[in-house]
Design a protein around this nucleic acid. Structure first.
Lengths: 361, 361
DNA sequence: AATTATTTGTGCGTATGTATC
DNA sequence: AGATACATACGCACAAATAAT
């Protein structure tokens, strides 16, 4: 059995008082003489204990004045100048631009960006968050949450982050139930704008393809519903296709499913350019002409929208600007914990060739 | 005037002995009792001095055994579990895959990847390297050097890195004069293979577009020259176009230049898919049919090669594998400083539609 | 395998110096 | 100027770990 030294009594006593909030940052401890009589130990032993506390960065000695509890949330907490960035996929067009935006801002301010990926897996996300909390060497965190529409088993980690008052911003997605600010597009507005545009072009039977496991998909769906409802149009479940991350990776397996949902529709709202790109290819291969037989509207306005066989009309998603904004706001939060870094971008549409205007008869 | 405490005598004495190399890592210091009589100070005072040295991570006490000088290059140097990754551009297809490969490997091994970009600017590179050396919180470095074909003003930083025995690997490019291992394609082989393929297809008048400020460009050019020479063909300077990073960003400004170099040629070897993509567009707009009038061979075999209006025959560049390999080798170097992480990949060709076979008459 | 000498760790007492309020 | 606080310094005794005998 390991015998603990006498001076550890004092060390533990102080630590406990701090934990119980009976000793707050800036408070003066008892003097060495007082401790000496309180614990029945010599002043030398008291000093030994205080040395341990000093070494551990818990207290601070000031000659002639006293011994003080260090101020954790201010001068003491020295910045590491590291920012953690956690995203889901190393996607071909979203990721590089967002990262570039973030890195532009952080590197100019002297920060390093530590980048990790979750591959949209909760397990990987939990590993990443655990690692971040254990290492405790970052000043702030930008995270694109995994499967944001599903219950998140990693909530405890987010609560711990809040408890530690570590500045954190959600990228793109967010959890409605969690009090963590986010920087993203207004995705409901995105869905609404897309639906409205199609309706303005004369479409009424409008299919929708959304992502089921991202909260973004849910918001875009909500916007789409609102657009339909505003114009007295009905949303038909048989024209709504929900794709999850797995489906998206194997679109070829979903061809029949997709074609059935698109039947009898004159237009389709696609979750993003990646999906739209695939849908266009599938349609063309199956004799459906774009936009003559089916109009397609998409989201992201990435280079894919340009490169697509039928250039896509797409709602813009300014990834570079989002990256810059989220980094700027995180840095502000680091300097001023009361700053709320929430920001939502308003969408805009880029018209290309994938939507046909229908003249009503 | 500040009076220095007596125990500092001992502290300074030890520090000096270490500086003069009279005390080497692993050496045992005199015992507390010996010091006590040597310096005419009490054992308590000796202990105080030794405490200072211990706090400064200079010596290590072992109860019952003695006090030892710490071994800086081994057990002492505790790993930070951070890897720095420095690349040039946040490119649309190269970067995400390489980063993904690196992050895959490093995160599995429990490392964080700190990513920075130089935008192919020496100034930015120097800032990044300076920051890395100042913070001194990484276990290894992967760097894609900036403008590797030009004299590098940041050589001093690389020498400092070598001096510190910090594991470092060059990505893609490297400096021939610097003793730092690299992981890349064999770019000379790339140029050779591309030239040979065109020659095998019956082409003799072959233009070449290379990047002037990357060493990769020079190597591919060297390979191209060898392929030509091996078949008794002459390399004509008027058919060689050198582009630097700036030119590449404003290809539209170079149209006349480009068309002049391609005159009288039946084929063109392009530095990479990005360049080839642009060249194809420029040619088609100017009435040059691909591959009927001009065959194009390219390098990278990225998705751009597929998406190009004329699908490109391209020499593959396995970015994901390169990323994985460089990360694996860096981790090996961290664990075993004698390990040489150099690796060169052999290229392979993917044939699409941009090269016409000429039947000789 | 047990003993012993050596070395660092813990703990206490005292005295004096120096900074702060 | 004086009281109080921490800093330095010396002395001693015993405990615990280590290494050699």
């Amino acid at each position: 059995m390991a015998k603990t030294p006498k001076y550890m009594e004092l060390v533990n006593w102080v630590k406990e008082k701090i934990n119980q909030n009976e000793l707050k940052p800036g408070d003066r401890l008892y003097s060495e003489h007082e401790f000496s009589s309180m614990f029945n130990m010599s002043r030398q032993t008291v000093r030994q204990g205080i040395s341990v506390l000093e070494r551990d960065n818990i207290i601070e000695r000031r000659q002639g004045s006293g011994t003080y509890v260090k101020d954790i949330y201010a001068s003491d907490r020295q910045k590491t100048m590291n920012i953690a960035v956690v995203t889901t996929y190393v996607d071909s067009y979203i990721f590089p631009n967002i990262i570039k935006g973030i890195e532009d801002v952080t590197s100019k301010a002297g920060y390093n960006a530590q980048i990790s990926f979750t591959y949209n897996s909760h397990v990987k996300e939990s590993e990443v968050l655990k690692n971040i909390l254990e290492k405790n060497n970052i000043d702030g965190l930008i995270i694109e949450t995994t499967k944001s529409a599903l219950p998140n088993p990693n909530l405890e980690y987010y609560h711990e982050i809040l408890k530690r008052k570590l500045p954190i911003l959600f990228l793109n997605c967010y959890y409605p139930g969690l009090n963590i600010p986010h920087v993203s597009m207004n995705d409901r507005e995105v869905g609404l704008m897309a639906a409205n545009y199609l309706i303005e072009c004369g479409h009424e039977k409008i299919a929708g393809i959304f992502k089921s496991d991202d909260y973004q998909g849910h918001l875009r769906y909500a916007g789409y519903r609102k657009g339909m409802a505003d114009h007295g149009l009905q949303v038909m479940d048989e024209h709504i296709l929900w794709l999850d991350t797995e489906d998206q990776r194997h679109m070829a397996d979903n061809v029949d499913r997709i074609l059935r949902r698109l039947q009898n529709c004159t237009a389709c709202l696609c979750y993003n350019d990646e999906v739209a790109f695939e849908i266009v290819n599938i349609c063309l291969k199956n004799g459906i002409r774009i936009p003559e037989d089916l109009s397609i509207i998409s989201v992201d306005n990435s280079h894919l929208a340009n490169l697509c066989e039928v250039p896509l009309t797409s709602i813009g998603y300014p990834f570079l600007e989002i990256g810059k904004a989220i980094a700027e706001n995180l840095l502000k939060m680091i300097d001023d914990p009361s700053f709320n870094g929430m920001k939502e971008f308003t969408p805009s549409i880029t018209v290309r060739e994938s939507v046909k205007k229908i003249v009503r008869t």
